[in-house]
Design a protein around this nucleic acid. Structure first.
Lengths: 192, 192
DNA sequence: GCAAATTAATGATTTATTCAAG
DNA sequence: CTTGAATAAATCATTAATTTGC
């Protein structure tokens, strides 16, 4: 009903007004999934930039959205696979073989044993050293954080107050209102 | 070499030549530790910007360096405390009380039980909702990733090739040289 | 049919862990 | 061995599905 006021892919902001988080359009999701299925799991900075540019014609999008999308998609893929395998092994009362995709879904390194001592996987020796076929000389397309530095299209987060507010009390003891439970620390410098 | 075209702050690279990672000067470390001890554990984007600006007079520094420094310092502080407490409890063959700093070094939420079932702490109910005294309206000084987006001073990572190289094969199957073991994926798009 | 209530998906952040330079 | 850098896992929080009572 009332399908007239909503174009198919017009309002990328999830439902109408300005939303706080990115809501991908169906086209964007489709293309992202295509790339992922094609084998692109962790795009480099340049790739993220280009993906963002291409997908921006379908709606508002930022580099960090693409970055997060791949991060989450990969993580949840791994988690799904891990859960499935765990259930499978648990059903047969077996311990997974040491090089099963339970331990290495893609190249997992932080799995935890099923009912074993927690420290067994923690302080195991560090393997996995050389064998880097990628040239180290490139040094320009670093994986993740670099994307953010390249973005200058101030969307809504670059709204830093232009005046130089005083930094922080280097020696006082009055800074105790720091982290709001975990992730809402949004006190620029002074509450007053 | 050829130090003529580079000003003093050019070679903070730990030992002379261009180094791959940031090596803080003693002054920088001292100031950072001062701020940390003063109570600044997770600086906001604006704070990171300002800290970077201030510390840049002592040597080359980037926002992400400051960001990583606080991340690492906080994490290793917590880890040290945790290890110490774990050893202490283990020495007395006690289980830590439930609200000990072993479980909550600062406000830990992802701790794991010592010899308990792994799923016990995992699917606990979601507590922790309201009680946010921080104003949500600010919306500009988001914790972490924002810093990177604000930086435009292309130090050495903004060296993206200007020509538009072709993105990725959306339908081909030839992308297999992707991730070098975990974190060294540095093939912009074409090795040739 | 419809909203309030509940649940499932998923975008965004933080924390733990690992890699590797010096 | 210390520590800067990077990634993966865990978690938080918001939006969409869905259920439910009317």
């Amino acid at each position: 009903m009332s399908a007239t006021d909503m174009v198919v892919s017009r309002s990328p902001g999830c439902s109408g007004g300005g939303s706080s988080r990115w809501c991908p359009t169906p086209e964007q999701v489709m293309l992202l999934e295509g790339m992922y299925r094609a084998g692109l799991k962790t795009p480099t900075a340049t790739q993220i930039q280009q993906i963002t540019a291409r997908l921006s014609i379908y709606g508002r999008i930022q580099g960090k959205n693409v970055f997060y999308w791949f991060q989450n998609h990969k993580a949840r893929d791994r988690q799904k696979l891990r859960k499935r395998l765990m259930a499978m092994y648990q059903h047969q009362r077996l311990y997974p073989p040491y090089n099963s995709p339970y331990h290495h879904p893609y190249a997992l390194q932080g799995g935890f044993a099923v009912a074993e001592d927690a420290s067994s996987w923690k302080d195991r020796v560090n393997k996995r050293k050389g064998d880097q076929t990628c040239s180290k000389e490139v040094m320009c397309d670093c994986p993740l954080m670099t994307v953010m530095m390249m973005e200058s299209t101030s969307e809504y987060c670059t709204r830093v107050p232009p005046r130089t507010l005083q930094l922080f009390p280097t020696t006082t003891t009055s800074l105790k209102d720091d982290h709001c439970t975990t992730s809402k620390a949004l006190n620029p410098s002074k509450p007053k």
